[in-house]
Amino acid sequence: MEDEKQDLMRTIQIKFPRLSKGQKLIAEYILKHYDKAAFMTAAKLGTSVGVSESTVVRFANELGFSGYPKLQKALQELIKNKLTTVQRIELSNDFISQESALKSVLKSDMENIRATLEKINQKTFNDVVNSIFSAKRIYIVGLRSSTAIAEFLGFYLNLILDNATVIGYGVSDIFEQMLNVSEEDLVIGIGFPRYAGRTIEALDYAKSRGANVIAITDSLLSPLAARADHTLIAQSNMASFVDSLVAPLSVVNALIIAVGLREKETISSTFSRLEKIWEDYEVYSYKEKRVD
C-alpha cells in the first residue's frame, strides 16, 4: 500500500515539469491533500484550486488514467485503510451537509450496490453456497462494525442448517471459540476498512487448521481476501465516519436466500414450528390489546 502511494505521488512529481499551469495547481493540491482530493468530484477539485473541471480531467489523462474517476479511485484505495475516525468526520463535514445527508448517503449506497453487482462473480457466489452445504460446522467472524452482518448471517443460517457459530468478543477469546475448527469446517470472515486485526488473525488460525475460508470484503487486495479460498466482493465506500454496510448486507441476504432455496422443505417445517412458538409466547404483536 505504501509502495502504491509512492508510485502515484512519484508519477505526479515526474510529470510535474510538463504540466500546464492549471494542472500544476492540481498536482500541488493532491500532493499536499490527497486524503481530501480522493473524495472530491472533478468539479469540486477544480473549484478548490481555481481551475475548470475539464482541466482536472485532462490532468488525470496526463497521469495515464482514462478519466478522473480512475484517478479518484486510485487515491481512495491509497487512503481508505489509513483514515482515522476523526479524519473521516472531517471529510464528511467537507462533502456532506446536514441538509444533504439523506440524499447523499442514499445515493452513495445505491452506487455501492450497483458497483457490487458489477464486480461480484456468480461462479464464486455459487462455490460459496456449495461450501456452506459441505461444511460440518460454519464459523462466522465479523468484528467491530461487521458484527451486525455476522450476527444476521448466523441467525438465518442457524434457522436453515443449525450448524453455524458466530464468533465474537465475550468471556472467551475468539481463538478459544474456534478451538475445534478443522478441515471439515468453513470459516466465513467479514471485514471492511479499517480491517479488524483480530478478524485477520482468526482467518490465519483457520487456515493453519486446514479449514475452508470464505471472505466477504471490499476488494481482492483486502487482507481478508489474501487469506481466503473464495472471496465475495461488496463495495463499502463512504466518505463518512460511518461504514456503509448496505451492499455487504445485500450480498449476505442473497447468500441466505440461495441457501434457503435449496432447503425449502426444511425451512417450511422450521418456520411452521417457530410460528407456533412465537404465537404461544407472544414474541410478536398479533393483535391489538384492549386498554380499559
Rank of each mutant, 00 (worst) to 15 (best):
L249Y: 04
M238N: 09
I26V: 15
V181H: 04
T85N: 09
A239D: 01
A42S: 15
A37K: 00
F155A: 15
A101K: 12
D292R: 10
L102Y: 11
A135N: 04
K5W: 05
A254Q: 15
K289V: 14
V259S: 08
F16N: 14
V181E: 03
N158C: 03
F95P: 00
N237H: 12
V242C: 12
L106K: 04
L8N: 09
Y205G: 07
L220E: 13
E62Q: 15
S272T: 14
D229V: 13
V166N: 01
S134A: 07
K123D: 15
S48N: 02
Y34F: 14
L102Q: 06
Q23T: 06
D35Y: 10
G46A: 02
G46W: 00
A148T: 15
S134H: 05
V171Y: 13
L117W: 09
Y195T: 06
G210Y: 07
A164T: 06
I256Q: 01
R88S: 09
Y281G: 09
N93S: 11
S108Q: 10
P193G: 06
Q98W: 09
Y29M: 11
Q87A: 08
A258W: 02
I214F: 05
L91I: 15
D229A: 10
A37G: 06
G67S: 14
E53T: 11
F271R: 03
M238K: 05
G170F: 02
I277N: 03
R18V: 13
F152H: 13
E201K: 09
K276H: 11
L143I: 13
N130E: 13
V128A: 09
E53G: 03
F271I: 15
R273Q: 11
P193K: 01
R137L: 06
L232Q: 02
V171G: 08
D94Q: 14
A148M: 10
G260A: 02
K36I: 08
D292E: 13
L232R: 02
G260D: 12
L83P: 01
S268W: 00
F133A: 03
G50I: 09
I174F: 07
G170Y: 03
G191R: 04
F241Y: 08
Q23Y: 07
N61Q: 15
L249I: 08
E4A: 11
I277L: 09
A247H: 11
S134L: 12
I132G: 06
I214T: 10
E275S: 11
I174E: 04
S100H: 06
I120R: 14
M9F: 10
N126C: 11
P69L: 06
D243G: 03
G67L: 00
S269A: 14
G67Q: 03
A258I: 03
V259D: 03
V259A: 10
V166K: 01
L232P: 04
Y29V: 02
F16T: 15
G210T: 10
V181Q: 02
